[in-house]
């Protein structure tokens, strides 16, 4: 039972302290604080006072759900990270807060992820997964929702994409901090997580269809409306945002595909072609994304990566803003106990 929990807790995405440079840590603390503050404001504005116990218990639920694993192959097991699921079922603002609590508690209580790097960990697993997962899900559901498998496909894709994005951003943070060899870490992270993402996707899809079959009232009205054909037609802006998100992901995969096969070889053959800009042993707080290049990378790839980080962050923030502002009135009125205070 102990190893069950240990396995569940050791996730490749939880960066420990010491592995990110001070400037990268600081940058992502700022981004995280902006997003979480926004989500807190949003949640306070909704002012549904049952949200507090709901989100608190849901955070515990996501934590416990990560213990529910299944054997995949060769002694490894798959389990759910939960970011996409939280975003789909609770909405983006509540999803961010719930996942923030999960990541924070894992770091504070179980040292699963560091303290100074917590900003980056929260952004990767709490903000990016929820915003991107929620966006992909909403977009796909609108496009294919009326087919019977719409929920399953959209849930799977949202979860897979969110895991891949988190893995990619984690790798980029390590690269920008000068703590990992670029091609190898990007290839390894995306390679491993393309499989982990499948597990995430399958579990998320199965959990969603289970909820739809047993208690559809706990799913947001936006989801059930689409499935029952009551939704408004797809807005152009949403298609655009969804398209952008998917395009960003595809772009992310492109350098991975081209760089990975010859990555190791190049490291071995021409050691020193990377990281020419800095002297050995220099402190690593190099400017992040300065001049639109990621430090420690050859020009071409570096520019693409820097652009991608930018695109990802902009898409995530933009989508979050749009959704948070738009969902103001999407109250969830279908509960079993009437409010009476």
């Amino acid at each position: 039972m102990l190893d069950l929990l240990e396995r569940a807790l050791v996730l490749a995405l939880h960066i420990p302290d010491g592995f990110l440079s001070a400037s990268v840590s600081a940058l992502f603390w700022v981004l995280t604080l902006v997003c979480v503050t926004f989500a807190v404001r949003r949640t306070n504005k909704v002012l549904d006072d049952r949200q507090v116990p709901l989100m608190g218990v849901m955070a515990a639920c996501i934590f416990a759900a990560q213990m529910l694993n299944f054997p995949v192959a060769g002694g490894t097991s798959g389990h759910v990270l939960g970011g996409a699921l939280a975003a789909i079922v609770l909405g983006p603002a509540a999803g961010i807060l719930v996942m923030t609590c999960v990541v924070a508690l894992q770091a504070l209580l179980f040292q699963d992820g560091g303290i100074v790097v917590m900003g980056a960990n929260i952004f990767n697993m709490g903000v990016l997964t929820t915003l991107l997962g929620g966006a992909v899900f909403a977009g796909l559901l609108r496009l294919i929702g009326r087919q019977s498998k719409g929920l399953v496909i959209a849930g799977f894709a949202a979860a897979w994409v969110s895991v891949m994005a988190a893995a990619a951003l984690t790798a980029l943070q390590l690269i920008a901090s000068g703590t990992a060899q670029p091609q190898v870490v990007l290839g390894a992270m995306l390679g491993v997580h393309s499989l982990i993402g499948v597990g995430e996707g399958l579990i998320t899809a199965a959990a969603l269809s289970f909820l739809l079959a047993t208690r559809p009232d706990v799913l947001p009205a936006a989801v059930t409306d689409v499935l029952s054909g009551n939704a408004r037609p797809v807005a152009k802006g949403q298609v655009l945002i969804g398209g952008l998100a998917i395009a960003a992901l595809l772009l992310l995969l492109a350098p991975f595909a081209s760089a990975a096969p010859d990555g190791l070889e190049r490291v071995a053959l021409d050691l020193g072609f990377i990281d020419g800009g800095r002297g050995p042993g220099a402190a690593s707080p190099a400017g992040v994304l300065s001049d639109y290049t990621v430090p420690g990378l050859a020009g071409g790839i570096s520019t693409i990566l820097a652009g991608l980080v930018g695109v990802l962050i902009v898409v995530a923030l933009g989508y979050g803003l749009a959704i948070l502002l738009r969902r103001r009135s999407a109250a969830r009125s279908n509960r079993s106990v009437p409010s009476s205070r």
């Binding site: 507090v52 989100m55 608190g56 218990v57 955070a59 515990a60 639920c61 807060l97 609590c101 508690l105």
Partner: peptide, 8 residues
């Protein structure tokens, strides 16, 4: 939220 989470 953190205290609810910890409790449950």
């Amino acid at each position: 939220l953190l205290s609810f989470m910890y409790r449950y």
